[in-house]
Design a protein around this nucleic acid. Structure first.
Length: 724
DNA sequence: ACAGCGTTAGTTTTT
DNA sequence: CTAACGCTGT
């Protein structure tokens, strides 16, 4: 036990050994947050204050949950497998599997990922003859999810105008469709399990009494529903506020909250303080990651945000190197500089995987990739297709889903004619109609319509029945293997010229099933295995999308969005595309809340670097097929000048004036004396850059990027623009 | 059923 | 610019 607590700094120690009470730990970037969280659990258990079964530890990512579990296993001589450590969604799934009846779900309910949900919505709109121009499926999906994440059912949704009242109707229809099909989307996992606990008092009480300590990671990212769920389990929910429940130990960093756009509520941190009557918060401010200059820059930047809980990172490491700032003539030029610099770093012996290129949006990776490729530097782009998202995997899984749950129309629609087996649009329409008439699922309609053997539909039904029989006789990996053959998937991809990778992935799926069985088998006692191995494998596949690609072995320079970089660290970090309108993004920079989230994003980016940080931007950038003229990001100006070193390309490192760079030197003129790329001043909006022009004479308009004030179209006749 | 064409949209996305 | 989607014609 004593070595459990060894090497903790005073605030870390205080957090870990806090008596049984609610607590909020404000954990800055690189301050040992995961260590505190896991050590806290280990300390609670090893001092006998609680048994492993009395712990509930919640994270957002599978990665974090696994990390916590394995670190804990290393600290304690217990089997951590059966413990309730997992993601919000994983734990809710577990709860719903164990109590599917009470939750009103079939035993083999399936989980829709975002793509499944979208296709379910498209199908719904089609069936209801709703114009998807007027009700874009994506928008409707967002509408539904946003409501669920607030804990609002269709019945309670406010229909504040005609359009919304229709959307609420569609929300209702969607709920009905999911219920009929026995499927739940991600948000539903949470809402359903929240409602289960809220409505089932004995059950709720059971869990409230069981969990003595609830620990939450990345608390700043919780949405309203997740917070309500935690409150309920902690006995602070609205049902029985007097119930004595668990101690909540929340760890988070309001400065790293970058998911407000999908419902995360920073306000939950203040609410937690108030509603759980926290006497104080513990701050972890000593940073073990970055050199002083980097932290000073991060601190200075984030100070610009108002309403923070407040925190100042410091380090015992020295100031380190200055932050390097580079301005390229074009995005092309910027990328070339970065790759030149990387080549130099590699020569100095920095590991390739210790260099990260960060950007605000995925589209920016293109130029960087091009330069890296040309220079022959191995790189890896994060954020691509994930394993369980690949079409061949989704197809195979859809067959499995249909076997597990014949009512799953989404799965049915996906595979009924893939590979093609002569069930075209007309047959499908017939099935659709029959299904609607009998209020049955598509598969049921197919089964009853397949009276006469020999038809394509009958053969399909026979195939599924056949495969279902397989599941009783064979192990899961065998079932998957056979399925790939019998459905014709293997044959299909064998015939396809690009099919080799897909076949390999299908083989990998068989391996995944084997691994899953193996890992699942030593999970003791707990009701996770409800619904059989097939159902739990499918849940696993939906909840854990898998790493992007099986790491190709070779170490590589890492390319990713700033969002994707959260939680990671690198010796050398390049933050690229630091331009007004890009980062901060123009869609977010208008209101303060938006700009502040962008600033937190920048804060996250800066604090990824251990030793060296580069900030790069370009004067011009190809965006949406046209050249944009850009001002440097206001975030660069917010950093103390004494920490920065502006660098120019060394004479040897490539001559400017090639490629896009030369185009930038002669910006197109617009006939009225204003040049694209020229800086101008406007009475109200301040200084901006002319980005494009339109028309001539009194009609002429110019588009100006005013940075903080945003992008504006101005009629020259009215707007008095002066050169700046 | 599918290729080929035209149209459209284009921040971030742990589950 | 480009990728992805949907429609149309064969």
């Amino acid at each position: 036990m004593s070595d459990l607590l060894a090497n903790l700094n005073p605030p870390q120690l205080a957090a870990v050994t806090l008596p049984a009470q609610h607590a909020l730990i404000l954990a800055g970037a690189g301050s040992g947050k995961t260590r505190v969280l896991t050590t806290r659990i280990a300390w609670l258990i090893s001092t006998g204050q609680v048994g492993p079964q009395g712990i509930l530890a919640v994270t957002f990512t599978n990665k974090a949950a696994k990390e916590m579990q394995s670190r804990l296993a290393a600290m304690l001589p217990i089997n951590t497998r059966g413990m309730w450590i997992g993601t919000f969604h994983g734990l809710c799934n577990r709860l719903l599997r164990a109590h599917h009846r009470e939750a009103g779900l079939p035993e083999t309910f399936q989980i829709l990922d975002a793509a499944d949900q979208l296709s379910a919505i498209k199908r719904l709109l089609k069936n209801l003859n709703v114009d998807d121009e007027k009700f874009p499926p994506r928008e409707l999906m967002h509408f539904i999810n946003a409501h669920k994440e607030q804990g609002i059912r269709a019945a309670q949704a406010e229909a504040y105008d005609h359009y919304t009242s229709r959307r609420v109707e569609l929300y209702t229809e969607y709920e009905g469709q999911c219920q009929r099909e026995g499927v739940v989307d991600f948000a539903e996992l949470l809402l359903r399990s929240y409602e289960l606990l809220q409505r089932n008092e004995p059950l709720c009480r059971h869990y409230q009494e069981r969990f003595r300590h609830i620990l939450v990671d990345e608390f700043q990212d919780t949405n309203r529903l997740q917070y309500a769920w935690l409150k309920l389990l902690a006995g602070r929910g609205s049902v029985r506020p007097e119930t004595p429940g668990a101690c909540v130990f929340a760890v988070g960093d309001d400065d790293q909250s970058i998911y407000a756009f999908r419902g995360a509520e920073i306000g939950n941190m203040r609410d937690l303080q108030r509603e759980f009557e926290l006497p104080s918060v513990i701050r972890l401010e000593q940073n073990y990651r970055s050199h002083g200059n980097i932290l000073d820059a991060a601190n200075a930047l984030i100070k610009q945000n108002v309403g923070r809980l407040g925190k100042n990172l410091w380090t015992e490491a020295g100031a380190g190197e200055p932050i390097r700032v580079f301005e390229g003539i074009s995005d092309f030029d910027e990328a070339r500089f970065i790759v030149d610099e990387i080549s130099e770093l590699l020569r100095e012996g920095i590991g390739r995987d210790q260099i990260a290129l960060l950007y605000r949006s995925n589209a920016q990776s293109r130029v960087l990739e091009h330069q890296l490729f040309t220079a022959g530097v191995p790189y890896r782009v994060h954020g691509g297709l994930r394993f369980f998202d690949r079409q061949e995997i989704k197809h195979a899984l859809a067959y499995l889903r249909l076997i597990a749950n014949p009512d799953d129309d989404t799965a049915f629609a996906r595979v009924v004619n893939f590979p093609t087996r002569g069930i075209g649009t007309r047959s499908l329409e017939a099935l659709q109609e029959a299904a609607q008439r009998n209020n049955a699922s598509l598969y049921n309609a197919a089964a009853s319509l397949a009276g006469k053997a020999g038809t394509a539909v009958a053969r399909f039904v026979a195939l599924i029945e056949d495969l279902r029989a397989d599941t009783r006789a064979r192990s899961l990996p065998e079932v998957v293997d056979h399925l790939i053959d019998k459905t014709g998937l293997r044959q299909h991809y064998l015939a396809e010229k690009e099919g080799q990778d897909r076949l390999e992935n299908l083989d990998e799926l068989i391996n995944a099933a084997t691994t899953f069985l193996y890992e699942d088998s030593d999970q003791d006692g707990e009701p996770a295995a409800n619904g059989g191995p097939l159902a739990s494998f499918l849940a696993h596949a939906s909840l854990e999308a898998g790493e992007h690609q099986a790491g190709e072995g070779e170490t590589a320079v890492q390319l990713m969005t700033v969002h994707a970089a959260k939680g990671l660290e690198f010796d050398v970090v390049f933050i690229t595309g630091l331009e007004q309108g890009l980062f901060p993004h123009e869609n977010a920079a208008q209101e303060r809340a938006g700009l502040e989230e962008e600033r937190r994003l920048m804060y996250v980016a800066v604090t990824r670097a251990r030793q060296r940080l580069y900030l790069t931007h370009a004067q011009t950038r190809m965006l949406h097929g046209q050249t944009r003229y850009c001002l440097p990001s206001s975030f660069v100006d917010e950093l103390p000048a004494e920490l920065l070193r502006r660098i120019n390309r060394t004479a040897s490192a490539g001559q400017p004036g090639r490629g896009a760079a030369s185009a930038a030197r002669q910006p197109p003129t617009a006939g009225h004396g204003l040049r694209i790329g020229q800086n101008v001043r406007h009475a109200r909006f301040g200084v901006g850059v002319i980005v494009s022009t339109e028309g001539a004479g009194p009609e002429a308009r110019v588009q100006v990027n005013f940075g903080a004030a945003g992008m504006k179209w101005l009629a020259l006749e009215y707007a008095r623009l002066t050169p700046a």
